[in-house]
């Protein structure tokens, strides 16, 4: 509850900050739509030559693109801006101020920067997903919906923990933001079903950068492809990474001596 209340506060601060720059809304809308056009355009070219891609039908891949945009939006709203700010505040020593607040520091650094216009991507992702599901015509049962929700949550947790681990590295290393940029560019690969990639790349996209668990696995739940193995794997990995990132954060924090002190 406390987490939600804090997140709500930071969201409100974000809205107040951005309200002065309302034209950014139009700009972000335009850019999100361009991203969608690129994704759907390339699907149109590919599917003019084939009926299935790695066993996925066109509407199913559109659903996958919806999940991709949705998860990208979640990363963009709070995870990426907060982690970037965390790295910066470790550099500049301003993390000191956060540590003195009467709240869990990990919670604070994880939600304190919010890019509200990225919410558009969440809405857009949901929209694309909705259209794709209507076109698929297969009734998504309650079980599938629950599976999808759980796996989406697991995917979000995995991505969050992964970013937190990388950002925590900044307690020891200086140029960590570079690794984050690499993750951003590898995330692009998640726009396609991970099963399409050759083995070595699939391994990398599953375990080195968890794109598969963040995007493909939830989409599998919706399109009836989910195997028990990947469901358990996703939930297990989410829990393990969450615990590990917490531990790693604590160790890192102990290593932090403040740049200003």
């Amino acid at each position: 509850m406390n987490t939600l209340r804090l997140l709500w506060t930071f969201l409100r601060v974000g809205v107040m900050g951005e309200a002065a720059y309302r034209i950014n809304f139009i700009v972000q809308l335009f850019q999100s739509l361009l991203g969608l056009v690129t994704a759907l355009g390339s699907l149109a070219v590919v599917f003019s030559y084939t009926d299935t891609l790695a066993g996925w039908r066109p509407d199913e891949v559109v659903a996958l693109v919806g999940v991709y945009i949705l998860v990208g939006g979640v990363i963009g709203v709070v995870i990426q801006p907060s982690m970037e700010q965390l790295i910066e505040s470790v550099h500049e020593g301003t993390l000191d101020f956060t540590l003195t607040k009467p709240e869990d520091a990990q919670l604070l650094v994880s939600i304190r920067a919010v890019d509200i216009w990225e919410i558009l991507n969440i809405l857009l992702g949901l929209g694309v997903l909705g259209v794709a599901l209507i076109k698929l015509k297969e009734a998504v049962g309650i079980l599938q919906a629950v599976e999808f929700g759980l796996l989406l949550l697991a995917g979000g947790v995995i991505v969050y923990a992964f970013w937190l681990i990388l950002a925590t590295l900044s307690f020891w290393f200086v140029r960590v933001e570079n690794i984050l940029v690499i993750f951003q560019s590898l995330y692009e690969a998640g726009r396609w079903p991970v099963s399409m990639y050759p083995g070595w790349m699939r391994f990398g996209l599953t375990f080195l950068v968890p794109v598969a668990f963040a995007v493909t696995v939830p989409a599998e739940a919706l399109t009836g492809r989910l195997t028990a193995g990947s469901a358990v794997g996703a939930l297990g990995l989410a829990l393990a990474l969450l615990l590990f990132s917490r531990l790693f954060w604590k160790v890192g924090l102990r290593n932090y001596s403040g740049a200003s002190a």
Partner: peptide
């Protein structure tokens, strides 16, 4: 970093089209 993104995109589309040729 810049090289990674230069390499990744053509590789992704290469894999997409490889997959289409197989199908």
């Amino acid at each position: 970093i810049w090289m990674i993104s230069q390499v990744l995109e053509p590789v992704i589309y290469l894999i997409v089209w490889t997959s289409v040729t197989q199908a």
